[in-house]
Amino acid sequence: MTVSTLLSLLSAGAVGAAAGYVGSLMVLRRMALVGDALSHVALPGLAVGLLLGFSPVLGAFAFVLVAAVLTWAIERAAGLPVEGIVGVLFVLALAVGLLLTPNPDLLEALFGDLAAVSLATTAVTVVVAAAILLLLRRLYPKIVLTVISPDLAASAGVATSLVSLLYLALVSATVAMAIQVSGTLLAGALVIVPAVSAKLVGPSLRAFSGLSLGFGVVTATGGVGLALGLNVPPGPVVVLLGVGVFLAALAWRGLRGTAPTRRADPGAADGPGRRPGPRS
């Protein structure tokens, strides 16, 4: 194994871990498709980086972060659902990105390229991924509380709006890194597919988030390793491997029986009884 291959796999593993962990919360927040759309928003950022001669990943991060903050601000100001706002930003960014990106670099931007990763970029990727994991570990319970009940979270002293903004910033950094592995078209898959697979088999929050992180590592390193061996862009291989993990998780769930359902209260054998008084 060459040093270059080793660095590529290391980068992929770090990105996969961060994407899997971040993705587990995106799935819980029912924002899976938002993660996918945000990855497309990175395209004009990549293009600006390529055109002006600075790191395309940095450009991608800046654009995704601006899109995430805009989404957060518009949601608060206009009360529009996040997926609607991201939908508008997504098509705008994709259109601008396709116009701006130089043709020779377009395929690489769309489908990823880890063939020429350096020691410095690998080190930065690993450090940023570790920072994302540590920060998110602290935010995780707060975000879960805001998912199950924003009022409950507020009563526990969670600054729900600030936590949401911080989380979007972490999503932006993760998506910008994932673009190296899967490209802008398929980076969302690295965030979504491992988490969806983990939700099928994780019996608790700890197991779910851990499995999501693990599936992310397996999908990213496995996909990049196979792509390097086959000399093809890594994005499609990562996605195919991720979907393979998803199908395996689906089969596992099928073998264990149907999804758990809500029990009835002991006194509800004939349907939920109600005190015969006024109700909302």
Partner: peptide
Amino acid sequence: RVGYVPQKLVDTDIPLTVEEFLAMK
């Protein structure tokens, strides 16, 4: 210190055990 019980939870389709939920607080 104020404890709060909402009318209902917004989303319970989460692999969150009772122990994990109580341990959050």
